[in-house]
């Protein structure tokens, strides 16, 4: 797996650029990742990112859009507004998590 420099730190990523080590992520890195995919982070974005981080810690897998709505409390429509076109993958990327595996 490649190692890239993000926010001045060496970070392990997969071939697509998703972080592979949960512990290497921090908010500075999230800001760089968001900028790279042209997302301007607001409090609403952080609410989802923090939920994804916490949920992953407990569940061991990345929450799907469905779960961000039902458990995280952010409606799907809002997810599409905050992370246009591909919310599930963009949210996971910025949160330093793998792409969600679930179908729904």
């Amino acid at each position: 797996m490649p190692v890239v420099e993000i926010a001045g730190k060496p970070i392990h990523v997969n071939e697509e650029g998703f972080l592979t080590e949960y512990g290497e992520w921090d908010t500075d890195i999230a800001k760089v990742l968001a900028k790279q995919i042209e997302v301007d982070l607001t409090d609403e974005h952080w609410k989802i990112i923090n939920f994804l981080r916490e949920d992953f810690k407990v569940q061991g897998e990345t929450a799907t859009s469905r779960r961000v709505q039902t458990v995280g409390g952010v409606p799907v429509k809002e997810q599409f507004a905050l992370f246009p076109k591909k919310p599930a993958k963009k949210m996971a990327y910025i949160a330093g998590l793998p792409k969600p595996k679930g179908c729904v």
């Binding site: 190692v3 890239v4 990523v13 697509e16 790279q36 995919i37 993958k89 963009k90 990327y93």
Partner: peptide, 10 residues
């Protein structure tokens, strides 16, 4: 040895 930045294609 750090690789160049890799950004997913969204």
């Amino acid at each position: 040895e750090v690789a160049p930045s890799i950004v997913p294609n969204f």
